[in-house]
């Protein structure tokens, strides 16, 4: 529940403390169920006062209810009908490739992604928005409908807890499927290593954009995948049914990095073309730093 301390392995109190005061606000118009921080596409339903909520630093002072302030010495914001709540769809990749944990990384990519998803869910729920969770690999494993109820966080964490990675990443078809299913516009937060065909990924993103979702792509990568630091003959056992490769990594390091950077560049360029936010999330960086950096930039 927002404002409460959640004792769960995906939610580090220290991280959450550092995220205090941050919000995930929609840059675009979103379709909420009820009043919220975000602009609604609907007009004329009510322009009247709906309810109060606590002032948070950064809120627009125009909406401060000065009368209440005069009576109670506490600052509340008036919420009107033209503001609606945000629906944040967290798309969490739970494929086998997300299981990888490099030699110098504290967490596997999946664990890091789970923490990331939990923190975002906490953040969204705390700002009284709704959050949905979709776990997928080669198909959609779980789909938790969006809710703004603070107890919803427990459900999300429980679902993430039960994740058992087995399948292969097939983002394209899944994104198309979800684009059809998620009718209400919101923020699509994709948390994945995206080890899939780039064209397929970008096609899925395009579909989301067609549905007028705002897209945030959190690209979770291990440091070893980005730097390839191995120097002994190594058998690389392919995850997700990919073949094993026995090679001297020193001889291929540059070539590998070139391939990897080309892939990243294509992905970034595709995101930029779709108006999606591309955020590189190295698993060796502290979670709060990644989130606060992005959210601050997003302001």
């Amino acid at each position: 529940m927002p404002g409460e301390r959640t004792a769960h392995r995906f939610l580090d109190p220290a991280v959450l403390a550092k995220l205090q005061g941050l919000e995930l606000r929609a840059r675009r118009i979103v379709e909420g169920y009820f009043a919220g921080l975000h602009r609604s596409p609907f007009h004329g339903f009510s322009v009247e006062f709906a309810e109060h909520r606590d002032y948070a630093p950064g809120d627009d002072l125009r909406y401060v209810d000065w009368k209440v302030f005069g009576k109670t010495d506490r600052i509340y914001l008036k919420q009107f009908e033209e503001e609606t709540n945000l629906i944040c769809y967290l798309l969490l990749d739970v494929s086998q490739s997300m299981q990888y944990r490099g030699p110098e990384s504290p967490l596997s990519k999946l664990e890091y992604a789970q923490c990331l998803a939990a923190s975002l869910a906490y953040l969204v729920l705390r700002q009284q928005d709704s959050v949905a969770l979709v776990t997928f690999d080669d198909s959609i494993r779980q789909l938790i409908s969006p809710r703004g109820n603070p107890t919803h966080l427990k459900d999300l964490l429980a679902v993430m807890e039960e994740v058992a990675p087995t399948g292969k990443t097939r983002t394209g078809p899944i994104f198309h499927d979800l684009a059809e299913r998620l009718k209400q516009r919101g923020i699509i937060v994709i948390i994945s290593d995206l080890f899939d065909d780039v064209d397929s990924v970008l096609a899925g993103l395009k579909h989301f954009r067609h549905r007028r979702h705002e897209i945030i792509l959190l690209h979770v990568l291990d440091r070893a995948e980005r730097e390839f630091p191995f120097d002994r003959v190594t058998l690389f056992r392919g995850l997700e049914q990919l073949p094993d490769v026995l090679t001297d990594p020193r001889s291929l390091r540059k070539a590998y990095l070139a391939e990897f950077e080309a892939y990243q560049r294509r992905l970034q360029a595709g995101c930029r073309a779709q108006g999606a936010d591309y955020v590189l999330v190295p698993t060796d960086r502290p979670l709060d730093m990644v989130l606060s950096a992005y959210l601050n930039r997003r302001k």
Binding site: R232, T234, L235, L242, V245, E259
Partner: peptide, 21 residues
């Protein structure tokens, strides 16, 4: 000997390795 007594690690980004190879 080194090819027989190699390190063995699971690897996610195999497709980039294969492409480089």
């Amino acid at each position: 000997w080194s090819r027989r007594h190699h390190l063995e690690i699971p690897w996610a980004a195999v497709e980039f390795l294969v492409a480089a190879l």
